[in-house]
Design a protein around this nucleic acid. Structure first.
Length: 446
DNA sequence: CTGGGGAAGGGGCCC
DNA sequence: AGGGCCCCTTCCCCA
């Protein structure tokens, strides 16, 4: 009876809105006028609550340029129907608008939508790397009450008994810092049981706060770390498995990476719709435009920086190291990794840490890994070194080194490789092998 | 158990 | 807009 009553009441209000009956509030979005009921907006949005609390109602209550009329239509329809019409094309802007309007429930639906779309939720489940899109991408359009209910069920399942966003959330003043708002959200997120099994989910990252960004307890922060742990764990497993198993794993990883990259591209495609945040909305007193991450409260000055930042949410790693298959979010990180790990660029003796030169620092190969040792240490250890010119990046071919043992990180055993790899290195040249951004779909497996 | 070093990863910003 | 550099933080490994 209660539900029926609520549903009926909402229908009545929506009908009144459509007929512009008793509408006492006007919202101007990029020149388009929306009519609504003040009390409904007040009850649904922290932003409107703040706005409408500030004294006598003006004729036009709010003007927005931060999101499009289409986006506000989606938001308003949700307020009056409980149905959120999400698609891959609008989810980013809806989420950003919801963040602006302080509508946590909408944010939650959006993040679930994105999470499902990105298929990150399964990323760290059980066996680290068994990613298959078919398992999770069940989230289609959220339009329709049934879908909406599914979302809610999905959310409730994730929360496993934790309460829905408390009304108290809306009582926060807009003048509060972002951390206040999102911090609260983060608290809720932390309480989610899903966070334990799925620390990498963007849903868990959503509430991350700028100030807490480097907090090790911040679920957002765990993403790259767990990613790394995953990588290392996988590497260690590799050591005990056959090369064929390695290739199978690589296939799976790259398959997942491909899907992730595609989804990320979808996100990036909608980037122009990611609204800038006016200065007063963040800590910058300068009212300049900033770009807000839809997954967390982080804001950046440039869209390119936002795109870069988004990779830490999407898990996209477009730069694979051809020597060890480790993937990186940035070319510079790949280059740095490659030079350090596979090219022995550091002119320091690995053993005694003394300074060496290109000439005095003998290069030692350990799997795909290379480093330098001084003459004294190399004698002590009793291993040979490879000629210096084998390190020329232009003639280096790290991928071939995979055949040695496919191992990048040390697996505990110190096998001092005596490698005369000039021939191997010369087999396939091209520095672009090192720094090439790989489209996974075309990526040639080794 | 602890501290140091290496590696990775993220942000700001310049070109 | 992308590339690149610098700086900082964090994590992991090892002595």
């Amino acid at each position: 009876i209660t539900v029926a009553h609520q549903t009926n009441l909402l229908k009545q209000l929506n009908q009144q809105r459509r007929q512009e009956l008793f509408c006492d509030c006007s919202v101007l979005v990029e020149g388009q006028l929306f009519r609504a009921h003040r009390n409904v907006l007040f009850a649904s949005s922290g932003y409107f609550r703040m706005l409408l609390s500030q004294g006598p109602p003006p004729s036009v209550n709010a003007t927005f340029d931060a999101f499009s009329p289409e986006t506000f239509t989606v938001i308003l329809d949700f307020i009056y129907s409980g149905q959120l019409d999400l698609s891959s094309h609008n989810v980013i802007e809806v989420m950003s608008a919801a963040s602006y309007l302080q509508m946590n429930n909408v944010i939650s639906y959006c993040k679930n939508f994105i999470k499902s779309s990105l298929d990150i939720s399964a990323k760290d489940e059980d066996s680290d790397r068994c990613l298959s899109l078919s398992e999770t991408c069940s989230f289609t359009s959220a339009a329709g009450e049934e879908s909406s209910e599914q979302q809610q069920q999905q959310q409730q399942q994730q929360q496993q008994g934790s309460v829905s966003p408390p009304p108290a959330l809306w009582t926060r003043d807009n003048s509060r810092s972002q951390s206040g708002f999102m911090g609260k959200d983060a608290d809720q997120e932390v309480s989610l049981s899903s966070i334990k099994t799925n620390p990498n989910s963007p849903a868990n990252e959503l509430g991350a706060d700028v100030d807490d960004y480097h907090d090790p307890h911040d679920p957002l922060y765990t993403l790259p770390r767990s990613e790394r742990r995953r990588s290392r764990g996988g590497t260690k497993r590799k050591a005990s498995n056959s090369i064929r198993a390695n290739q199978q794993e690589d296939l799976e990883i790259q398959d997942a990476s491909t899907q992730k990259a595609e989804k990320a591209e979808e996100l990036y495609a909608s980037l122009p719709q990611i609204v800038g945040v006016i200065g007063h909305f963040n800590k910058d007193p300068n009212p300049s435009m900033r770009f807000k991450c839809p997954f967390c409260t982080h804001t950046v000055k440039r869209k390119a920086d936002l795109k870069r930042h988004l990779r830490c949410h999407t898990g996209e790693r477009p730069y694979p190291c051809q020597a060890c298959n480790k993937r990186f979010t940035r070319l510079e990180h790949l280059r740095s990794h490659f030079e350090t790990i596979h090219q022995a660029r550091k002119l320091v003796c690995r053993k005694c840490k003394c300074q060496v030169t290109e000439e005095t620092g003998h290069v030692v190969c350990e799997g795909t890994r290379r480093y330098r040792m001084c003459a004294v240490c190399i004698q002590e250890v009793g291993c040979d070194s490879i000629p210096m010119d084998g390190l020329d990046p232009a003639s280096d071919e790290p991928a071939l080194l995979l055949g040695v043992d496919g191992e990048e990180e040390g697996d505990g055993k110190r096998t001092w490789m005596v490698t005369d790899d000039d021939d191997e290195l010369a087999e396939d040249s091209g520095a672009d092998l090192i720094i090439q951004q790989v489209d996974d779909s075309d990526e040639e497996l080794q």
